[in-house]
């Protein structure tokens, strides 16, 4: 019960954040140099034609009226019509979103399945070769620019070795390179945080108590080290959704992956205001949702946080 109340409170507290983000991106999009009406009309069009298109799109109105229009349509659950595609924005997003979700999930899955074992093993044997290997990988993953990694992957695996396709999304094989590129971005930090939080958890006094009870090493590790170490790990996973979305924009563009990242780039190039707004709105909502989910997961792991969050709400 208190969970539902907590959720309701968190959601209502996110509304100002949401409105602020909405206003900010609305202005930012319009501050961009370039004019969608001019782009639609073409370079040779007459000024009066451009003006007519501007009026059709409602871009001749003052900025505040445009915002009021936008918000009122939004309140009706309508994201507007794409300037470029002349279709509802929601349709464009829904057509592309599954690709981004699949890409993000596969990347996260790769990152977790490499980073967690690597972090755990190198925490348990801090001076082993594996530990050095994992530190090197984390450093590389965290510091290599994603577009460079993507280009290198294409060069090595598509051009030289001809193992994997370099662009498109026609078969499951197409996801391997973009997902691995994205995973590499997440892996570095995830390995590092996993390693350090496990080292910290295994040095806590309650682990000594667990050993004094005569618990088996496995039970000590799973119950009293790993579960306690999960809190910082979950945090970093939540925070990484940000890098994941940012990384997806670059990755999707390089690999021509038809997700909302590459859609956003298209929309920006075409100054498709409604489409840009629609996509960013989705991203903002994702962020807010992830933050709430991360806090709920904390509370599920740690009863101290549960008491603090739920009892006071």
């Amino acid at each position: 019960m208190s969970l539902m109340r907590y959720l309701a409170k968190r959601v209502s507290h996110s509304i100002p954040t949401f409105i602020g983000a909405l206003l900010f991106m609305f202005i930012l999009v319009r501050v961009l140099p370039g004019d969608p009406a001019r782009l639609i009309a073409g370079p040779e069009a007459l000024e009066q034609d451009v003006q007519r298109i501007r009026e059709q799109l409602g871009l001749d109105k003052p900025l505040y009226l445009q915002f009021v229009d936008y918000v009122t349509t939004l309140l009706r659950g309508d994201l507007g019509t794409s300037i470029k595609f002349r279709t509802p924005v929601i349709n464009e997003i829904m057509a592309r979103l599954p690709y981004t979700i699949v890409l993000a999930l596969v990347a996260e899955a790769i990152a977790i399945s490499v980073a967690l074992p690597l972090g755990i093993l190198s925490a348990l044997r801090p001076n082993s070769k594996l530990s050095y290997v994992s530190s090197t990988i984390s450093l590389l993953g965290a510091s290599a620019p994603i577009f460079w990694v993507a280009l290198m992957f294409i060069y090595v695996f598509s051009v030289s070795l001809r193992w994997l396709p370099s662009s498109g999304a026609d078969s499951p094989r197409h996801i391997i390179l973009p997902a691995t590129t994205l995973a590499l971005l997440l892996m570095g930090n995830l390995t590092r945080i996993t390693r350090s939080s496990i080292i910290e958890a295994s040095n806590s006094n309650h682990v000594l108590t667990a050993a004094a009870k005569g618990l088996r090493d496995r039970a000590i590790l799973v119950r009293h080290v790993l579960k306690n170490a999960m809190i910082p790990i979950v945090t970093i996973m939540g925070l990484q959704i940000g890098s994941l979305l940012g990384g997806a924009i670059i990755t999707e563009t390089v690999y021509a992956w038809p997700g909302i990242g590459s859609l956003l780039i298209d929309a920006i190039f075409f100054r498709d205001y409604t489409l840009i707004q629609g996509i960013i709105l989705f991203i903002v909502l994702t962020f807010i949702a992830i933050n709430i989910i991360v806090d709920v997961v904390y509370a599920l792991i740690d009863p101290r946080i549960r008491d603090l969050l739920w009892r006071t709400s």
């Binding site: 006094n205 050993a211 004094a212 009870k213 039970a219 740690d302």
Partner: peptide
């Protein structure tokens, strides 16, 4: 350990695991 030799530590605040009930932690013995 825990059956023939029992150990009591100094600081009860840090020698219990904060994320399990005390009943669980004693039951583990």
């Amino acid at each position: 350990r825990g059956s023939k030799i029992g150990m009591i530590f100094q600081d009860p605040n840090t020698y219990l695991n904060p994320i399990y009930t005390v009943g669980f932690q004693v039951g583990e013995v």
